[in-house]
Design a binder for these strands. Structure first.
Lengths: 186, 186
DNA sequence: TGTCCCAAACCGAACGTTCGGTACAATGTG
DNA sequence: CACATTGTACCGAACGTTCGGTTTGGGACA
């Protein structure tokens, strides 16, 4: 009898965080099952127990987890009328999440290069939802142009920081992001 | 007798252009030798005749070609004091090079995800040289902050456009790039 | 002109390796 | 026992690379 399908266990959700680091560092193709197993501290068969459809399942779980993190931890504190304190905390959270510009974003690492279509779709909706969420806290609310500039600055800053090996480029972007958020609430 | 090392032939340099498209679409890992051979119209072994060290050689050649294109075609017309016409032509060239936001940039596609260290080094110097070149045509010359914002907007716009499948995000970035160039010359 | 020669250019087939994924027996825990 | 979880061994397919050999084109020499 084949191994049973997997519910969501505790070791599964703990693994997702580690898998995320591998995908963000190596991209979809570069994230081999060997690397994923080592990073998660699980054997290959355990990975396939928790993610029956394999690598694609893992990537989808990573994107879903990222979406959850994005809304519950990053964007929620900005709701309403963000002041200096909220904006500062927002930028600090971004810097931690991206390791001060030393770790990529799933949106970029999974969508540049090729990945399965379901993953691409998930990435796409993650990105659009993120822009919408930023637009909601911008001024005027619903104005998407500023939100696009903010998310673009984050992604662009990451590309520059990672490609040049200079986290300073990401720090520059964070400054501009903060300025744009201040500007929209002023 | 082993086949001799390859000089720079006409078919080699013609191949580099096609190889570039594959690397920019699929990334370093995703660009399989099969894809590279098909795109270049050469057999696998012919590729190894022109690029004896294989995939890494091809990627390095693509980066070198990109650097050449960047300076001779994209940046050169901006030298001196760029006016409306030069800035418009600059943006039009960018839009064509990036297929209106439908084709990635070697800088991002090769550096996100893992690639051999020599390739990463080449990418890094390509990026830094590009920023320097943009800084040289900004106002005041040598001011790097604006140049970083411009290159960041291009890279960020590409990430958004490609991840969302919406070239409009890239077009938005192009508008902002033009505005920054106008602003610096005003 | 004809043809012999050689090296560059080219190719399909095959190599060894690693890939993503599976089978299965053993383990721990209720 | 029932059942989720795991390590080990394994599979076919695809990977990057190499091999043996064919085509091509331009002198050299009769």
């Amino acid at each position: 009898m084949p191994t049973n399908p997997a519910p969501d266990s505790e070791s599964r959700s703990r693994a997702i965080g580690e898998l995320s680091l591998v995908f963000r560092r190596y991209g979809y193709q570069g994230a081999t099952t060997k690397l994923l197993a080592e990073a998660s501290g699980l054997g290959k068969s355990s990975l396939y127990h928790h993610f029956p459809s394999g690598k694609e399942d893992m990537a989808l779980a990573v994107v879903a987890k990222t979406q959850e993190l994005l809304f519950e931890q990053l964007m929620a504190p900005l709701a309403g009328d963000p002041g200096d304190k909220e904006i500062g905390a927002f930028v600090a959270l971004l810097e931690r999440f991206y390791r001060d510009g030393r770790l990529g974003c799933v949106i970029a690492t999974l969508s540049l290069g090729d990945c399965p279509k379901p993953v691409a779709r998930a990435i796409k909706s993650l990105l659009e939802d993120w822009i919408d969420a930023v637009a909601r806290v911008s001024d005027p609310p619903g104005e998407r142009a500023t939100a696009v500039r903010i998310v673009r600055a984050i992604q662009g800053g990451l590309v520059l920081g990672l490609a040049a090996g200079k986290p300073a480029y990401f720090a520059d972007a964070m400054q501009d992001v903060a300025a744009m958020l201040y500007g929209s609430s002023a």
